[in-house]
Design a protein around this nucleic acid. Structure first.
Length: 581
RNA sequence: GGCCUUGUGGUGCAGUGGAAGCACGCCGCCCUUUCAAGGCGGAGCCGCGGGUUCAAUCCCCGCCAAGGCUACCA
């Protein structure tokens, strides 16, 4: 018997990390047994399914490097249409449940059940009779029995308001059987419902597939990993911002809105670039996000109603419209993303696209999620897709929900980046920056980027790390803020020892003609020896504070070279002036 | 509330009827011009209570906790 698995997401949002793992396991199992993987889109929820989500899911699966034998054609992303039947892969199509419904596939079978008295009409919907005990076997969770008394008749075809479409339970059962699926690999949230699917299989005369339920992936606080995390993070950020603001009340709202408005054009451009294919309508979201942000701020403090009234007043005073507040139906998580972006807080990674944006490699993401609920049994943790396919075994899937550990993922990613061929790292970094950090590429220039990439390869957890750590390379001189602790430790301590070194060394640098890392390094070395300083750090650390405001940078030679002579001298002067006050 | 499932260090996973291992994290030391990396060492676990047994983390029962389902969402 040929193995046939399927991945069947509903296109109501982008692919999240749990879905990615389900897809990975279904893919690995199919490949291991030289079987087939079907991608089927379950778009029977008229209200929530969107073509953007479909495209997003295909895009994210493709980014991960997973492929499928039947389903929408991934090539359709380039100007094509995934819904176009003639371009779909495989002969068991169509692969969208909306299309299958249009073909009458479900209605025919509903009628059959109706005729046989196994289902009945209620209002304008159709219900299936669950009138006997059901037992089934799950590959992971074992034998499960449910008593008839604990079961209820359930809807298999929605009424008018649901467009007479089949419900999820009916559509999956029918499609899995008709498409010849042998192994249904899916999330554990479907385990209880499987009794329904088993009963339906029996009633329709289908063979029951093997059910394989995967434990869930949870968040570090024990909650299910979901978009809610974004909302939570956004609220926290909102609170932090307000607590740190010198303004309060109306003054705060006013300054926040003014800042927002000033940044709106750039923001819109960024949002469109960073969140492609998402459900956003930028204008509405900026307005709406703003309003909600303000409400969250108020809500988290005291009486919501009073806060809303007050907010309304503020908004009127400055001519902002918060009427959308009540009416707009916009994805909260999306709004959360906007807040976080606006407020310059990190956005928690939930969806596959979030991990990409944060600079994780697809191979590492895949490797890490494979370890959630599965292991090869010999202690191996670092492996690639080939290894996974070779060793994949449903027997080794655990039953316990697992928490997603971003720290461990980051470590995996850092290791891979550090061991990578420098040329490869550079090209990946360039690609990442081209999409997410174009301003860095522009400021650094080609030669600068080479140095920059080299300097940060060993220090990067993700492809985005260099942007954070290396911001001082691209910011203007007067944006440098001096950290008190760093200043004290490296400059002012011992009667300004460090400051003195800095002043003296400035003159050495001013006379330097060959501005290269090696020469600069040599200058520091000889200066250290000449002045009988403790070690190179006695010079390098004060320089770091002057260059970065902090005491951390890549090696000092390349750092100075990349910054350029003029900038280095400017920053030293500015630092000496500022600190001496 | 009812039903289903799960319960090994902070997290992810091994493991066994006979005094529990690995990875990440954490702490300390070393190396070092900072950071990161690296090297060395350390703390910390079988949810609780009963049974069965010479012996239980492992088998049984109860409890507790967590997750899921209980939708014309999937």
């Amino acid at each position: 018997m040929t193995v046939v698995t399927r991945f069947a997401p509903s296109p109501t949002g982008n692919l999240h990390i749990g879905g990615a793992r389900t897809a990975l396991f279904a893919w690995a199992f199919a490949r291991k047994h030289s079987g087939q993987l079907i991608l089927r889109l379950e778009d029977t929820d008229l209200a929530r399914s969107t073509p953007e989500s479909t495209r997003g899911i295909i895009r994210d699966l493709t980014w991960l490097g997973l492929d499928w034998d039947q389903g929408p054609n991934p090539k359709s992303l380039d100007g094509g249409d995934p819904y176009d039947r003639s371009s779909q892969l495989g002969d068991k199509g169509p692969y969208f449940q909306s299309q299958r419904h249009a073909d009458g596939i479900y209605d025919k079978l509903v009628q059959k059940l109706l005729d046989e008295g196994k289902a009945y009409e209620e209002d304008d919907a159709v219900r299936f009779r669950m009138d006997r005990d059901i037992a089934f076997d799950d590959v992971v969770y074992g034998h499960i029995e449910v008593k008839a008394a604990d079961l209820e008749d359930f809807i298999i075809r929605k009424g008018e308001k649901g467009g007479k479409l089949p419900t999820f339970h009916f559509a999956v059962t029918v499609d899995d059987a008709l498409m010849g699926v042998t192994h249904v690999i899916r999330g554990q949230e479907h385990l209880t419902n499987t009794s329904k699917h088993a009963a339906l299989c029996d009633a329709l005369g289908f063979d029951r597939p093997q059910w394989v339920h995967l434990p869930s992936i949870m968040n570090s606080d024990g909650s299910k990993m979901s978009k809610r995390d974004i909302v939570k993070a956004a609220r926290k950020a909102a609170k932090t911002i307000q607590n740190n603001s010198q303004h309060s009340g109306e003054e705060f709202v006013r300054s926040f809105i003014e800042q927002l408005r000033a940044e709106t054009p750039k923001l819109k451009a960024d949002v469109e670039r960073l969140l492609p294919d998402s459900l956003l309508r930028a204008d509405a979201i900026i307005e709406d996000g703003l309003a909600r942000y303000l409400v969250e701020v108020k809500r988290s403090s005291s009486k919501p109603e009073k806060a809303l009234a007050q907010l309304s007043q503020y908004a009127d005073a400055i001519g902002a419209d918060i009427s959308k507040l009540i009416t707009a139906e916009i994805d909260d998580a999306l709004v959360g993303r906007i807040y976080l972006y606006l407020l310059k807080f990190p956005i928690p990674e939930i969806e596959v696209a979030d991990f990409k944006r944060s600079g994780y490699l697809q191979s590492v993401v895949l490797n890490y999620i494979a370890l959630l609920g599965w292991n090869p049994g010999d202690g191996t943790e670092r492996f690639d897709l080939d290894f996974l396919v070779e060793h994949f075994d449903l027997k080794r899937i655990g039953k316990k929900n697992s928490q997603f550990d971003r720290v461990k993922l980051a470590k995996f990613n850092a290791e891979v980046l550090a061991e990578m061929e420098p040329a490869k790292f550079k090209s990946l970094l360039k690609e990442h920056f081209a999409t997410y950090r174009p301003d860095y590429l522009e400021k650094l220039g080609d030669a600068g980027f080479e140095l920059f990439a080299t300097a940060y390869q060993a220090r990067s957890q993700t492809l985005d790390t260099p942007a954070d750590l290396g911001r001082f390379f691209v910011c203007s001189d007067d944006e440098i803020e001096y950290n008190d602790k760093a200043v004290k430790k490296n400059l002012t301590k011992n009667d300004g020892e460090g400051l003195n070194v800095l002043k003296q060394f400035r003159e050495v640098l001013a006379g330097c003609e060959d501005w290269t890392a090696d020469t600069l390094h040599g200058l520091i070395e000889s200066f250290t020896a000449e002045k009988e300083l403790k070690n190179m750090g006695s010079v390098a650390q004060p320089l770091r504070v002057a260059m970065t405001g902090n005491a951390v940078s890549p090696e000092i030679g390349p750092t100075l070279e990349l910054l350029g002579k003029q900038t280095v001298l400017n920053r030293i002067d500015r630092c000496i002036t500022t600190v001496s006050q």
